[in-house]
Computed example of a mutant assay.
Amino acid sequence: MTDNLLRRAEVEAITGLSRSGIYALMSANDFPRPIRVGKRAVAWKSSDITDWINSRAAA
């Protein structure tokens, strides 16, 4: 199974969170960390975002 990489705008659209909301949750260790895909680019694994959403729904 391939794991798609999502850029920040896609993560914002999927989760409904703003940029500052995403980074605030990451600082609190309540959101998946992105992986570096370039010198100045990061992306999140789609499975990490899906797992986070499912964990929020269960809580």
Rank of each mutant, 00 (worst) to 15 (best):
L25H: 04
R36W: 05
L6F: 02
G16S: 05
N29A: 15
D3T: 12
G38W: 13
Y23I: 09
W52C: 00
R7A: 15
N29R: 12
M1Q: 01
K39T: 10
L17P: 00
P32L: 10
R8Q: 15
A57Q: 06
V11A: 02
G38A: 11
W52V: 03
R36T: 11
A59S: 14
P34S: 05
S27D: 04
R33Y: 05
K39P: 11
A57V: 08
R40S: 09
D48C: 03
A9F: 04
L5D: 01
D48H: 06
N29S: 05
V11L: 00
D48G: 05
R36L: 07
L6N: 01
A58S: 14
L6M: 12
K45M: 15
I22R: 03
R19L: 11
S46R: 14
R19I: 13
I22N: 04
V11K: 02
W52G: 02
E12N: 06
D48A: 12
I35K: 10
G21C: 03
S47I: 02
D51L: 11
L5T: 06
V11C: 02
L25A: 12
E12C: 11
R7F: 06
W52H: 08
G21L: 01
S27V: 08
I35M: 14
D48Y: 03
N29I: 13
I53Y: 03
S55I: 12
N4R: 15
A41C: 14
A24E: 07
R8S: 15
R56H: 09
R8C: 14
V37C: 12
I22H: 01
S55D: 10
I35A: 10
Y23H: 10
S18R: 02
A9L: 09
E12A: 13
A9H: 02
D51V: 03
T2D: 13
T15C: 11
V42N: 10
F31V: 05
M1H: 00
L5K: 04
K39V: 10
S18K: 02
D30N: 12
R19N: 15
